[in-house]
Amino acid sequence: MKEYTAPRLDRPWSEVNPGGIVLDPGISVTYITGTWRTMRPVRDQAQCTQCLICWIMCPDAAIPIVDGKVDSFDYDHCKGCGICAEQCPVNIKKPHSVTGELGKVIQMVPESSEGGE
């Protein structure tokens, strides 16, 4: 994806694109939807089996892929919907690296608390 800076919202009429066309594919990344979050997903990377279910289920393409593996979350865009945690099929054997709780590899924590990357 191209690197973008947020587009200007103050261009005069003579400078807007004809017909309202948008020429910058994917420039929506400059809009930070992460601020919508009240709960944040956290992943225990060590216990993750890389099933990729969270990746395919994420409405916001907010689960980055590094070397073919899911790697944390894109907190600039994750809206905290919780689908990834709900759909995570892996029950962990050891307490979660972030929450210290048993349960799933992905767990939701309140946005105000410490945790995540």
Binding site: P12, W13, S14, V16, G19, G20
Partner: peptide, 11 residues
């Protein structure tokens, strides 16, 4: 931006 687009169209 709607207003700017309409002004441009008019021009």
């Amino acid at each position: 931006y709607y207003f700017e687009h309409k002004r441009q169209q008019s021009e």
